[in-house]
Nucleic acid binder design. Structure first.
Lengths: 169, 169
DNA sequence: TTGGCTATATATCAAAGTGATATATGTTTG
DNA sequence: CAAACATATATCACTTTGATATATAGCCAA
């Protein structure tokens, strides 16, 4: 899946691994992210598969790899994009803890939930800042849609957690 | 994290790996799940760590391992439970595809979304069935809360996806 | 001007987790 | 009575992550 994400990020032009990581941090990171330890090996694999071509620029004696989509890579990406996704899991540690909350005393439960809700609020602020930055640029509409989704999702979480607290004081 | 989940499932009594897997499939699976390829090796690790004890029952010539929490294991679980969780990522393939939806033509986009929304509806039905089964038993309140959360979460997804379709026809 | 900080850029490794598959027996059911 | 299903454990190759290392460029303040 990470392969396909990397190909997707090359759809609007060639980039270095580092540039892609930076872009991710400011766009998809809240719902999909990965680190350099995936990016660089994946690009080597994509190169041997013929999905990307690399231009080894040597910038001031330092090697610098700029990756670009090949026709095959573009086709592979678009084929993947057309397939209906499976329903995903939440896989949220917070949910797992709540599942076991009956084993925690009420005081700790409340303190933890309140602190967590606070974190959620901060997170929503951060996403709001990213959205505002992008909305003033000419971001593609569906990319914008995922950002808006993120904000609403964490808002939904906040609301639900609040309700949980209220119901089970 | 899987270690802690396994310990948590032993809090209400000893179980085999298989029993835990079955229990997960009918309770946490929509937000947290794992397979035998994690469960069995993890239990071996937990045993060497002294967090679980194992009674090797030989049932009809076949080996059968029943795991139980040790005092240390119980302490480790409760310590983990008391720590505030980090905010989790969504890491949903559907979101990733929507992020790149501007590269897909409208016809395919609509077809995919509609099919996906259908899957969501089916999923919500399944979760509803699990909830009804549990609500007639004496499930602990916070465990029930996560089930209710799941149903609402996928309902939220359905709603949002519908709106996305409507906004960007 | 030089020492420190931040940004750019790539690489690697151990650890965690997954999906698929294999094996074996017991139980139910048509 | 054979087929299908449930119980139960194991393993392997693969993917992904977190931490850490390395090196240079550019900027800023003392």
């Amino acid at each position: 899946m990470i392969e396909m994400m990397l190909l997707g990020f090359l759809m609007d032009g060639e980039k270095t691994g580092y540039q892609i990581k930076k872009y991710m941090d400011n766009s998809t990171s809240y719902f999909f992210n990965t680190g350099f330890s995936s990016i660089y090996p994946k690009f080597r694999k994509l190169e041997t598969q013929g999905f990307v071509s690399v231009s080894q620029t040597v910038k001031n004696g330092k090697l610098n790899k700029v990756y670009a989509l090949t026709d095959e890579g573009k086709r592979a990406f678009l084929d993947w994009l057309a397939i209906k996704p499976e329903i995903g899991r939440i896989r949220d540690e917070a949910m797992l803890k709540i599942f076991f909350f009956d084993y925690l005393d009420n005081e700790q439960r409340m303190a933890q939930m309140e602190a967590y809700i606070n974190d959620l609020r901060e997170h929503i602020q951060t996403l709001g800042a990213i959205r505002d930055r992008f909305s003033s640029s000419d971001i593609e509409p569906w990319k914008m849609a995922t950002l808006e989704f993120g904000i609403r999702y964490y808002g939904f979480l906040e609301e639900r957690f609040h309700e949980m607290l209220a119901e089970r004081g």
